[in-house]
Amino acid sequence: MSELRIGSIGLGNMGGRMAACITRAGKAVLGYDPVAANITASGATPAGSAADVVDGSDIILLSLPKSAVVEAVMLGDGGVLEHLRDGQIVVDLSTSAPASTRMIAGKVLAAGASYLDAGISGGAAAAEKGKLVLMVGGEESVLDRARPALELFSGKIFYTGASGAGHTTKLINNFLNAITLSATAEAMVAGKKAGLDLEVLLDVINNSSGVSFASLNRFPKIIKGDYLKGGLTNSLMMKDVLAYVELARDLGVASPNSAGPLASFGLANALGYAEQISNTVVDAIGDVSGGVRLFDPVPGGADAPDAPHEAPHDAPEAKEQP
């Protein structure tokens, strides 16, 4: 069987890094993004439109902000659905609502093509290294066909079940991510105000029952002034938590634990951190706790890092975020 031609629609923070992994592996990517600079940075071959990507590809990767955008790209006039051919595969790598995913998948199947929903975890750092974790829903036989392309930017691929299962798994994972990040941020602000040595506090947490991805991988850097810029912003984290709450409602699952991250990331958005990496939620909590910062650089010192709360509207760069 001939090698699948790869196309990519959406070449921003995550999509661009995934496409770059593919091109670094010596494979061509036909790419489209409304921001031309994103196409150039990804190393993709420019396409004039999303429809052109479909016309020139066998497998089409989508990396878009939310379900509404995915629906517009897939189902809008002149969109992907109108140009699909028999045997093509569309892989939605966005964080989308499972109900929307299943609806689109049905329309794609009726057009003779296949649709996989592939939630991703690992953030910008893993995307940069081609080590993302993928959680994939849809037909397992279709995943087997798509796997050679997906392995170019992922370290682990989990088959999670029928259409929508991948995006459901992603929302659940992101919900836990939001809880542990916001809760650890609050705990670290409390530790700072209590006068504790934050390195010792983290060492205790990471060897005790309070350990989490946030305490292991984020806060050892944050307490030294490195907010690991890049990845999920506070506004996107809020979007994902709300999407989980909607999923829980549809499933009939009580969600008392959603109150914490909704309050924390809502606070961050209200205080001007909306487009900053979600790790800055600790500064938002610090703001309303007496102006607390976990890292106190010497004013004007050579070792003083960029402080996100000083300039909350700087565009994020790249490092880490599940």
Rank of each mutant, 00 (worst) to 15 (best):
L152F: 03
A68S: 12
G137T: 02
A19W: 00
A68H: 05
D77E: 15
D92N: 14
D92V: 02
A25M: 09
L134R: 02
D86V: 12
V54I: 09
D55L: 13
A124F: 08
M135N: 04
V80N: 02
M74N: 01
S114P: 01
A127F: 11
V69E: 06
V142I: 15
P65D: 02
D33F: 01
A127I: 12
P148L: 08
T101A: 10
D117Y: 09
S154G: 13
I120T: 15
D58K: 02
N38G: 06
D86P: 07
V73S: 07
L61E: 03
L132V: 12
R102T: 04
V73D: 04
D52K: 05
G138K: 09
L81V: 11
M103T: 07
A25D: 13
T95S: 15
G122S: 09
L116D: 05
E128S: 14
V69L: 03
A118C: 14
T95M: 09
V80K: 05
A118V: 00
A113C: 10
V69I: 15
G48P: 08
E151C: 10
T101P: 01
P148R: 05
K131I: 07
M74I: 15
G26Y: 11
A113E: 03
L152V: 10
S94V: 09
D55K: 14
E128F: 12
V35A: 14
A124E: 13
K129N: 15
G78F: 10
P98T: 01
P148T: 09
S94E: 02
A36L: 05
S49G: 12
A36F: 04
A99W: 05
P98W: 06
N38F: 10
